[in-house]
Design a binder for these strands. Structure first.
Lengths: 345, 345
DNA sequence: TTGAAAGCGTTACCAC
DNA sequence: GTGGTAACGCTTTCAA
């Protein structure tokens, strides 16, 4: 495995000259450069990124901290990040987070420029103190689907999204509208779902509807949870005529439960989700579309920008980039049928 | 940012001793160790992986080369890898491959121990010559969903899978069975689909059925492709009564086309897919299940094993680990209805 | 058991 | 322009 020294020897020049050629320094005579390039070629030399990193104090690596298993939508976001980084010279190191402990571990070890030059944190509410530590360490950081004081972030207005979904159901004439989302006290501290619930409650209040406690349910973003909650909901004396699930994955569970209970969607029960993941199109789920891929892509770009900026300017201008939400009406929502539905006043 | 020297100074010991403590060498007096550990703690010292890697000649990193965007199934496999690596001390670097050029690039630069200590290549048929280069470079390598001479691999018997699917349709009484899969001349050189097609042809031959050229179609693993091909198939004078799509994603397209053509599944047309990705369960698709997650997990473990093995033994015993396929019968296949179907003898 | 010193492959600073 | 040389932070060998 040839080193820079071998190249230098072979080309009959000094170490420094090879390095200069490598890094495109203009202070090299054309003829010398050619000779060095030639030697590099014949020797099949390739710079050692580790050594380069050690010397430079950076490692050409971007760390992505992502709750990979927890959200189906994370994958789509990750795709965006990958696409954004693809043209850059940065490698992408994946840090999966399955538990809060996990997060602490990773964030702790990543507060160092030597594991990753920049950090992309997805969907994980990061304690202000952690953020502070990261900021101090000088590692540029971008949050995607999360917010933090003084940190550049790509966000979605989940309250607005929750409003959109609920308003759609209200507009269709529904009264007994159930909500299913993450537990506000979930161990990760995910807040998106809670925000959506806020939107739900706000719209209901505006419509003069009472928020029935038996219609508000919580659980992780899993299909099984949706199926379970759906079954409970449909077994109620006064069942809902519509369900707003704060994720498409949960929504599919609700739909499965409806089928199981012999209910037709949307005739007997309307279902709306959130995210617009790939499967939603397949099954015709009405939902609130989040630009998942774009969020990752934009996050990646922002991080690359921060990395490209001269160190002193870094982090001085944190920006929050809101992404547009869009109501996608497909075939799982419709006006309530008179035969069924709430009899509440 | 404290270095090992700071720790040494603070603990009043030499550099080497700190290093020994760090690496769990037994040749350190308990009292000394305690003092060092103490210093490490108060200083908040953390070893620099880059420096460590440079010195050691490795970087505690596993490279995963994966056609991320090309196959939905790749994500599931990736999940498995992440899970396998999670407990190890290796970081996972993701190399996306969107085009053959991409592949060359990555593989070229990864033939070096300094970017990744080990390599996991997914679903990408790697030219024997590349494999040779990698083998020579001493980087342990594991193939998942691909095969190569002399390389440890996790594989599925796609011919057998193709047989399973086709036999299921034949057993149901179908005669005009269409096939949709990757173009055998696809630019990546993916072969799984072609293997499945082999199984399809074999079963048809055994059943005494002619393989109708108009019923064998090719295209990328995209839903749109399935929809397009489905439309063409259903417009035939003598349309098929069943379709075997070599991926679930294509199968969903076929189903969409059926709905569009006013055909009921499975009454008018049976559809079987391949993979059993998450959505397949949701939509009740009959399919051949591949243990995607497991394949990634096993691949990760095998790579970790290889990495743990003493260098000389590496690669001496490449093994091929076949994974079990399973026919999952759900609701998209049924016997052909008499009213429709082929009239061929 | 411990300390000192020699690398690992680069980059960057300093003379020439 | 170009060639030495000192870092970068760690592991490891060699003495002591």
């Amino acid at each position: 495995m040839p080193t820079i020294a071998d190249v230098a020897a072979s080309a009959g020049v000094g170490l420094g000259t090879v390095s200069r050629v490598l890094n495109g320094s203009p202070k090299v005579r054309a003829e010398t450069r050619a000779r060095v390039l030639d030697a590099i070629d014949t020797l099949g030399y390739r710079p050692n990124p580790l050594a380069r990193g050690l010397s430079l104090g950076r490692c050409q690596t971007v760390g992505v901290v992502v709750p990979f298993f927890t959200h189906a939508s994370a994958v789509e976001r990750l795709r965006g990040v990958v696409a954004a980084l693809d043209q850059s010279r940065y490698d992408l190191v994946l840090f999966n987070v399955e538990s809060p402990v996990h997060r602490e571990e990773h964030l702790g070890s990543l507060t160092r420029r030597d594991r990753a030059d920049g950090l992309l944190i997805m969907s994980l509410p990061t304690p202000a103190e952690e953020l502070e530590r990261l900021a101090v360490s000088g590692v540029p950081i971008v949050l995607v689907d999360a917010e933090g004081v003084g940190v550049t972030a790509v966000v979605t207005d989940d309250v607005a999204g929750g409003r959109m979904a609920t308003q759609h159901l209200v507009d269709l004439g529904h009264h007994a509208i159930a909500f299913l989302g993450d537990d506000p006290a979930n161990s990760f501290g995910f807040t998106s779902s809670t925000q959506r619930e806020l939107g739900y409650r706000a719209v209901l209040a505006e419509a003069g509807e009472e928020v029935r406690r038996d219609l508000v349910r919580h659980g992780p973003h899993e299909r099984e949870v949706g199926a379970q909650v759906g079954a409970e909901l449909f077994a109620l004396d006064d069942p809902p005529t519509a369900v707003f699930a704060s994720s498409d994955v949960q929504a599919t569970g609700i739909i499965a439960a409806a089928a199981h209970a012999g209910l037709r969607v949307p005739e007997d029960i309307s279902v709306i989700g959130f995210d617009d993941v790939e499967i939603s199109g397949y099954i015709g789920l009405t939902t609130v579309r989040q630009p998942l891929f774009d969020s990752g892509f934009l996050g990646g770009q922002l991080l690359l920008d921060a990395l490209a900026a001269p160190a002193p300017g870094r982090g001085d201008h944190p920006q929050v980039h809101p992404l547009e939400l869009e109501l996608v009406i497909r075939t799982t929502t419709a006006p309530p049928t008179s035969g069924r539905g709430s009899t509440r006043g």
